[in-house]
Amino acid sequence: MNIFRLFGDLSHLAAIAILLLKIWKTRSCAGVSGKTQLLFAVCFITRYIDLFLHFVSLYNTEKVMKLIYISASVFTCYLIFFKFKATYDGNHDSMRAEFLIVPAAGLACLINTKFDAIEILWTFSIYLEAVAILPQLFLISKTGEAETITSHYLFAQGSYRALYILNWIYRYHYESHVDTIAIVAGVVQTILYCDFFYLYITKVVKGQKIVLPA
């Protein structure tokens, strides 16, 4: 474990917590893409499938973190699609998730480390996570704005994988560890946030709201 990965995971936890708090406190999921949250839930379930296959006692924080990610993302989807369904902005959350899931699944079968079920699921989860935020960014471009709290959520969510890139550089240099698939997908994922990061740093930090087109 290194400082970059630690802060990456903390940033990811913060993002999940910020979104849950926003929906729970405002009792509304306006401005939140339900599809992105569904894709994240699929990512966690397919990536941490080992938790279900051979249940191991919660002897280390990693197992606990995996369970937190899975339960929090499923609970977030429950809030969006059931509890606060009336506030779900289905009209603007219109990016076709199939256009993300099918290519990720196809690519996972073509480019992977080992052609076995668990490894293919892990690879699918990595590719899907790289593009899972697109419906959320698409929704913001359609509505033309993002609530400040949603901007904070996106900043934490984007920072998590950006910090992981620093972690991979660290591990390459000190542990000669390389996980090419995760690195390439992580770089693509972080690049997708660049436009948002620019808006966040130039606007939200100054107390302004993000309004598109910028």
């Binding site: 995971d9 990693e62 973190m65 560890h177 390389v178 996980d179 090419t180 995760a182």
Partner: peptide, 10 residues
């Protein structure tokens, strides 16, 4: 550089 056998990250 060796690729990771098991994926040891979240």
């Amino acid at each position: 550089k060796k690729p990771s056998a098991a994926h040891d990250e979240l």
